[in-house]
Design a protein around this nucleic acid. Structure first.
Lengths: 160, 160
DNA sequence: ATACAATGTCTGCCCAAGCAAACATTGCAT
DNA sequence: ATGCAATGTTTGCTTGGGCAGACATTGTAT
């Protein structure tokens, strides 16, 4: 039997991973938005462009999966990024359902221009974290996501 | 000089705390909602009631701060919780700006009824986490929040 | 006493995210 | 070849959060 991390007798909201995640993410969102807002750009928009620039995503679906973002929201986000000349769309020849996304030169420049601003902010934020703490937090967040993702996929198939 | 966890040369989205947090939180949200949805209850609603039941919050403002949630959203959430008889509001005598919140018996019962469901789900989710990993993740998430909160307060005062 | 800043609650408005449906395309099974 | 499930993209609709302002109340400085 696996370790029971939570017990009904002792459970407190302040120890719940769900609550801790929500709270931290909400604040992080604020901080990130404050970095990008002066450049008329949202956190998700920038992350999407970053994913494209890293080659981690080529299509809208890739972005949805990578960012856990809504389909429709991504379509509309791409609309505005395209309008602003940061991203271009081109119907794929191999699979005509797919629209291939590419960063324009302007878009790539925008990504690079904002990267140091975000990095500075993150480093400032993590001042009190040792290298070990930082890498452990990174690792555990990724591990948690993998577990959540597995659970999520299972749920979609009605497994319990 | 503090440790520079991120460097512009090597920065990758998949290591960014902001991205990792957003992704994990989005999935966690899904999982939590799937627990509460059958009972016509949202994750935030339940957390709010839990906070009340733990005595961690007495007023709407307390809930806002504790949960990093919007003022207006909390007001409206309390409207529906009150309608459903889970929460009652009463104007404070000491400070007549304040509305004191109390869980009704029905509300308390609802919190208790759903607690084991959430706990089971969380334990299942964290099966592959050792006790050490679990407590370290909890600690680091809290530490991160403290740092974010300090940064957030500083920003509100225009400090850089 | 009075003015003013800070706090708590509530409301109206706007916008982005979530949901569901539509449509096109592809791969697979028969 | 044909039907069908799966995938990718888009759109309309609904819902809830974020923001700004209104209002009441309190504490504080003058």
């Amino acid at each position: 039997m696996a370790t029971k991390h939570y017990d009904i007798k002792t459970f407190r909201s302040s120890e719940s991973i769900g609550y801790l995640l929500k709270r931290a993410q909400a604040r992080m969102q604020d901080v990130a938005e404050s970095v990008f807002a002066p450049h008329d750009m949202s956190f998700v928009q920038w992350i999407a462009m970053l994913k494209l620039s890293e080659g981690q995503a080529q299509t809208a679906s890739d972005l949805c999966r990578a960012m856990c973002h809504d389909n429709g929201a991504v379509t509309r986000m791409l609309d505005t990024l395209e309008e602003r000349g940061f991203v271009s769309r081109q119907r794929s020849q191999q699979d005509r359902r797919v629209v291939e996304l590419t960063l324009t030169a302007t878009g790539a420049a925008q990504v690079e221009a904002l990267k140091p601003k975000l990095i500075d902010e993150l480093n400032l934020l993590l001042t009190d974290f040792s290298a070990a703490e930082f890498s452990e937090l990174t690792r555990l967040l990724d591990k948690l996501y993998q577990a959540l993702d597995a659970r999520h996929s299972a749920a979609r198939q009605g497994v319990n």
